[in-house]
Design a protein around this nucleic acid. Structure first.
Lengths: 172, 172
DNA sequence: TCTCCTATCGTCCGTTTCGGATCGTCCGGA
DNA sequence: TCCGGACGATCCGAAACGGACGATAGGAGA
């Protein structure tokens, strides 16, 4: 059982390869418009991590002959197994959030109503922007699960748009 | 202007001290039941960071005489200024999320309906548990801003409880 | 066909963060 | 007085971070 030393990012890589990504750059492209929205990481991981997974026998690495001699990855049976086992194990882990806006609200007891509503408006706009992105993605989605994830994103953004909007209103 | 090299955690520390926390352990206690819910970080930062801030002149550090000789921190005028300036600057930064449940959903195209609903139930319960925590906190809150933050937490958890519950239902 | 130019792509590396192991200290009870 | 468990603080190796930098491809124009 070659797991445990696998991090969430490991599974992101395995999952992306399973969904047809072949090279690190390819993963980067795909992640930046999908899984990256709810699991953030630097793109450099997508170069380091597959290498590690190849060493563990979960990916097979092949070098292109010509041109950039890019590393092309495919899932090994062991990799498929590791991914499947992880997927099948329900998680009760708590999502982690890092929200600067809430941070400022939390510590912003001394802010004037104007300053507070400026914060609220800025945050509302940020969430609206993200909402627009999700709406655009929603139209292009084909798989049922991806659709569900996008739906979660939409619900989440709408919740926060409402939250900040109301906050600006009540503190006026 | 001694900022820029300040991270969000720096402001968490400054904010906690401004709210009356005095020692690292004290911050740890307070953070773990409040700000820690929407800005996660390891407790060891609460020992390293104040030291850094003291060096920058934003906190004053004083050693207790007897006993554990703990470091007791207070805000300097410069620290207060740095905190206030940060608070007053509205942020349009996007919140970051790391949600293992959504990750599994995203990659879980091959899951059976049963496996999927097991995931959904586990996630629903995790969010319910967090919701209960927030409800408890909500009763004890005094400041308007803290109340607002808790409200955001409540709305967020309810959104996700609903999301996972519906998902379990529609895929049955 | 050659030469730029720009977008694409990949790697590297110094700095932070992470998170848990570990160790000292305090306090209450037997 | 001794012991045990909670409290409090520190440390450190490993991992993540993120941005700078450099290489390559492919197309436009001459």
């Amino acid at each position: 059982m070659p797991d445990n030393q696998l991090t969430p990012v490991s599974y992101v890589v395995l999952g992306l390869v399973a969904q047809g990504a072949t090279t690190s750059y390819d993963m980067k492209q795909k992640a930046s418009r999908s899984v990256g929205y709810f699991w953030n990481f630097p793109h450099s991981q997508l170069y380091a991590e597959p290498e590690r997974l190849a060493k563990l026998g979960l990916l097979e690495e092949e070098r292109e002959e010509g041109g950039r001699r890019r590393r092309v990855y495919t899932l090994t049976p062991a990799g498929r197994k590791a991914l499947d086992e992880w997927l099948r194990e329900p998680t009760s882990e708590q999502p982690q959030i890092r929200d600067t806006g809430l941070l400022k609200l939390f510590f912003g007891e001394g802010l004037t109503p104007d300053e507070l509503s400026a914060l609220a408006r800025a945050q509302e706009e940020a969430h609206l922007a993200r909402l627009a992105v999700y709406e655009e993605i929603a139209d292009a989605v084909t798989s049922a699960n991806h659709a569900a994830v996008v739906r979660a994103g939409l619900l989440h953004e709408r919740t926060f748009v409402d939250f900040w909007r109301e906050l600006a209103a009540t503190r006026r």
